[in-house]
Amino acid sequence: MIVSAFGLGRQRRVLPGFGLSLGVSLTFVSLILLLPLTSLVGQLSQLSWSQYWFLITDPRLLASYGVTLLGAGVAALFNAAFGLLMAWVLVRYDFPGKRLVDALMDLPFALPTAVAGVTLATLYSSNGWIGRLLDPLGLSVAYTWVGIALAMAFTSIPFVVRTVQPVLEDLPAEVDEAAVTLGARDGHAFRRVILPYLWPALVTGTGLAFVRSLGEFGAVIFIAGGKPYETEITSLMIFVKLQEYDYAGASAVASIVLATSLALLLAINLWQGRFIKRLHGGRP
């Protein structure tokens, strides 16, 4: 199999630059990506299993897993709804200022996370523009898990919008028309016909938003406040351990974060592949 693939490759190598581009790419990937990642493995290999287990099950750390998962989960769900709404409105309707709103959707990717972090912390603190309105109602966002979810939601807004939007754009008008000629009301048609078409994109976008939220740091730390057992996210725990020169502890936690993210990404890709395969009648 590999041999035949090689032979085929050789035959098709009509274009120049294979050696050079392979060399540059491999050198870069090795030096920039693989070498540093190997150092993590190296660091971890100095730990015994019991030491490792002890490090990753520290109660304060366990609490941080909880609040990170909670925040990322809420943020991802918010973005699933908000992203779907925005994609729908931007694709299906025309209104003044539409191009500006469309461009604004990318703001969270363009704006440095630290800037987003200090801004949200300022807006939602008890004397900020929004916090001031919420405070008398007994609602506090800053220094609670709600603030963490809010910051995570902000930085991952583009994921759902930008994955659902192109799919919705490509949806042929006939799909709507077929549903309507069969007598379906809007709600029924949306739930039973449109939503299933958008489903793979929606799940993928939401999954990516979730993964991104799990790892978010800059936007979250300011509004979170970092109260142990309450508003410490896992990324912050790594950071704190590093400042205490606890490299082993930081590495252990990092391995958990890294493994979770990679596993989730892999799961999203596999799920997407299977779903798409079914729609194309077993042909990928």
Binding site: L40, V211, L214, G215, I238, A254, L258, S261, L264
Partner: peptide, 11 residues
């Protein structure tokens, strides 16, 4: 996929 803090850590 990697949290930026983890990226910093490995370096």
């Amino acid at each position: 996929a990697v949290s930026p803090v983890v990226a910093g850590l490995v370096y």
